[in-house]
């Protein structure tokens, strides 16, 4: 494969910006929705009244997660059609598990003694959740959000298959037309975006870990 500098420039400066923006849009919408659904669900599944559904819910999400990303994306087409919306819905399915699982794990890890002491001082259930449980569970929840985000960036490249655009467009186009320039730009930016999110969220995770807990 011979590469041309000219085509490389076209790929990087003319095609890439739009692809990156579309990709970011898909990632941000999907992850935001995933957080809005998963965190409350995780909280609910650790409350005594709903705890019994926890295992069932996790098992269902676990099975969903075993399905290859390509299959989920492909199945969205006959059911939901072409475009960004079907892609977001498809990606959403598998981005729930890491956040729900980590929310539950994080909340369960908060020591019973601390909760007992908080209740004993007269904090109500809501105060205990917001002031004690959530802050202590937050690093673990964030780590789940990080896993989900990296997943969405990655499988999001396949969203191009059902017409959602994004960086996948450049890669698949590049492969189909044997244009390595497009391929390198698309794949490279995809990798950079994914690594960027991973690092940024890791940093946030570190920052948000309460110093008193970090010391251990």
């Amino acid at each position: 494969m011979k590469m041309s500098w000219e085509r490389f420039q076209i790929a990087l400066f003319e095609k890439a910006p739009e692809a990156v923006l579309t990709h970011l849009l898909i990632v941000v919408i999907t992850v935001a929705l995933a957080i809005l659904i998963s965190v409350p669900l995780g909280v609910l599944l650790t409350r005594p009244r709903y705890r019994k559904f926890g295992v069932v819910a996790l098992n269902i999400l676990n099975i969903l997660n075993a399905i290859p990303g390509m299959a989920v994306i492909a199945l969205a087409l006959p059911i939901l059609g072409l475009g960004i919306k079907p892609a977001v819905v498809a990606l959403l399915f598998q981005s729930l598990l890491p956040i729900v699982r980590n929310t539950i794990a994080g909340l369960l890890e908060v020591s019973a003694d601390v909760k007992e002491a908080a209740a004993g001082m007269g904090m109500n259930q809501r105060q205990i959740l917001l002031e004690v449980e959530m802050p202590l569970a937050m690093p673990i929840i964030l780590s789940g959000i990080r896993t989900s985000t990296v997943y969405v960036v990655s499988v999001g490249t396949l969203a191009a298959l059902i017409g959602a655009g994004g960086l996948g467009n450049m890669i698949i186009g590049g492969l189909a037309l044997f244009m390595p320039e497009y391929l390198i730009v698309g794949a490279g930016l995809g990798a950079i975006m994914s690594i960027f999110f991973d690092r940024a969220l890791s940093y946030l995770e570190y920052k948000i870990t309460p110093p008193g807990v970090r010391a251990n």
Binding site: D113, V114, E116, A117, A118, V132, P210, G212, V213
Partner: peptide, 14 residues
């Protein structure tokens, strides 16, 4: 006032 053996200080608070 309530004091327990495990103390239960909130680890994320000073």
């Amino acid at each position: 006032g309530y004091v327990i053996q495990q103390i239960g200080l909130l680890p994320h608070r000073t």
